[in-house]
Amino acid sequence: MNQILSLFAIYIALFLFGMTVMRQGLLHLQGDRMKDWLHKAVDHPLKSLSIGIVVTALLQSSSAVMVMTVGLVATGYLSFRHSIGIILGVNIGTIATLEILAFDLTWLIFPLLIIGVPLLMTKSHLLFSIGCFLFGFSSIIIAMHGFETLTYPLSSLTLVYDWILSTNEHNIVALTAGIIISALIQSSSAVTAIAMSFMNENLLILPAGISIMLGANLGTCVTAWLASIGGSKESKLTAYAHIWVNVFGILLFIPFVQLFSYYIETLSSIPSQQLAHAALIFNVVCSLLFLPIIQYFAKFIQWVHKTPIE
C-alpha cells in the first residue's frame, strides 16, 4: 500500500514539475510580452477574453496568469473591471493542456527527451527555453502514463475503492474531492488528468469525472486568492471574481451533470477525450454567459464583499 501511494505521489510531483519547467521555458521566451498583452487588455471585454485565452494556452497555467493579473491590478496597471474579461479567458485557455493529454502521446516521450535534454545544456537562451518546454512536456506525458498504470493497484486499496464508489454514486462527493485536491496541489489540470486516467480504465464514470473537474476549477482559485493577500482592494476583488465565476458555473452545471454527460458521450467514445471536451464546453459556456454582463458582475462582486471602488 505504501509503495503504491508513494509512486502515485511521485507521479503527481512529476506532473507538477513538468508543468513548472514547461511554463518556465515559455516564460523565458515570452514572459514580458505576455505581461504587456495583459496590460493592454483594457479597452474591450472581448479583447480581454481573447488575450486571457491566448496567454493561458501558451503558458499552460491558469494560476500563473491569474497571479500576473492580480499583480497588474495591485500595481494599478489594470482595473478590476477589465480584469474580469481576462479571468473568463483564463478558464478557457487552461483547457488546451487537457485536450492535448486526452490523446495517447507516450510515443513522444523519448523523442522529446532526446531533443530536449541536450538543449538544457546549451548557453543559448532560445535553445534552453525550448529544451525546458520539451523536457517539461515529456515529464507530463510520463506522469500521465504513470497515473494509468497505477489506477488498478490504487483501486485495489479499500480506502480508494470506497472513494471511487462514493464519487460514482454522489456527484457532490466528487465535486468536493476536486475542490480539496486542487486546492492542495494547486493544479486543476493535474486533478482532471488523474480523473481522466481513472476514466480510461473504466473505474470512474463520466458524471463523477465531470464533477471532479468542476471542483478542480474552483479549487485552483486559491492561488490567486493567496496572491491577493496584502494587495490593493481591486486586486482582492479580482481574486474574488475568479472564485465567483467558478461558483456560479458549478451551480449552473451540477444539477444537470447527468444530462450533460449524455451529450458529451455523443462527442467521443474515449473517456479521457469526453472529460476534456466537457471541461472545454463548461468553461466556454460560462465565459460567454458572463461576457455581456461584466459590468453588472463587477458591481455584484463589490456589493457582496462590501468593497466600493472610487
Rank of each mutant, 00 (worst) to 15 (best):
L259G: 02
H170G: 15
V90C: 03
S235Y: 07
I95V: 12
M199D: 08
S62I: 14
A13D: 11
D162C: 11
G93W: 05
T20P: 14
Y77K: 15
L275A: 08
M121D: 11
K123I: 09
G71A: 00
I281W: 05
S228E: 04
V222P: 04
L88R: 14
F17E: 10
K47D: 07
C132H: 01
I115L: 14
A276W: 00
S138Q: 05
E265H: 03
T266Q: 15
A9Q: 13
D32P: 14
L251F: 14
Y296H: 10
A143Y: 03
A216T: 10
V247P: 13
S61T: 13
F135L: 00
L29A: 02
A193V: 04
W163C: 13
F297A: 13
R33Q: 03
V257N: 01
T97C: 06
S138Y: 05
S48N: 09
L72K: 11
G25K: 04
L267K: 15
I95M: 09
N91H: 11
R33N: 00
I141S: 01
V21Y: 02
V222F: 00
A216P: 07
Q274F: 01
N217T: 11
S155G: 10
I142T: 10
I254L: 03
A239L: 09
H305I: 12
L108S: 10
I185N: 09
F198D: 08
V173L: 14
A278V: 04
G93R: 06
L108D: 09
R23K: 11
L29H: 01
T167H: 06
I109G: 01
W37D: 07
V257S: 07
T223H: 04
T266P: 06
I130Q: 00
L98Y: 08
A13N: 06
S228N: 05
A298D: 10
G93L: 07
Y161A: 15
H82P: 15
L108N: 07
L58K: 12
F133H: 01
